[in-house]
Nucleic acid binder design. Structure first.
Lengths: 110, 110
DNA sequence: AATCTTTATCGTAATATTGCGATATAATAA
DNA sequence: TTATTATATCGCAATATTACGATAAAGATT
């Protein structure tokens, strides 16, 4: 077929995969980094920052929002997007944990 | 159109996106976790562990290998796959750095 | 109310991913 | 050399993603 067999894996594995997918495009990495460095989290600024059309950026923002990586709040006519601290923390914790476990491990081959 | 505009972003952003994409499927998260916990990094064991056909697993392994997340070494008839420490470390460092920066930041809205 | 500004959604084309049966390849074993 | 075993690749169908013009929706401004 072609549909991802997500239901065959654990909730946690799917959760990590979903978060990873939310960053699996350079535009979305760029959005995260922009939100981190700027004090202006207005959607229009993100659109101006990126080399993509407004609907495309809007779509990327929606995916990141659905994944829980960012959140938006209405600010008059504009929308202010910010990074979701808890989610980023979750990702950070996951990779730190993997790294620690890997350090403690003695990989046989390679 | 439909092709990702990767050339419009920085090398680093593409690099992170590529690594994220390598984990943007629960099967690939499962593979990483299996490789972390087991002492048997034989390909056939991974195939048995996952609810996917052998060619599908082989394809996922190839993508993870291309992204540099794992590496394989020939072990007789079998192939032994291991996690690439440096790459995992890179991911860990990236998210830790983001997390630290975010903690230090005062997000205006949301 | 009419208009302007900002963002979201629709529709659709191009491309990429996912999954797997069939088959090829490579190393070992008989 | 002929199996056997383990993994990779091919080919294709189903599905998902990416991109964007056109347009809708929601709020501000006049």
């Amino acid at each position: 077929m072609g549909a991802a067999k997500t239901e065959e894996f654990t909730k946690r594995q799917n959760s990590i995969a979903t978060l990873a997918k939310a960053l699996a495009h350079p535009a979305r990495v760029a959005i995260l980094e922009y939100l981190l460095k700027t004090d202006n989290c207005i959607c229009g600024d993100i659109v101006n920052e990126l080399p993509l059309a407004q609907p495309t950026v809007s779509q990327h923002l929606k995916e990141m929002k659905t994944a829980g990586l960012i959140q938006g709040s209405v600010e008059g006519t504009a929308i202010c997007y910010c990074i979701n601290k808890d989610t980023l923390q979750k990702l950070q914790a996951y990779f730190s944990q993997l790294s620690v476990k890997l350090e403690a491990k003695n990989q046989k081959c390679c």
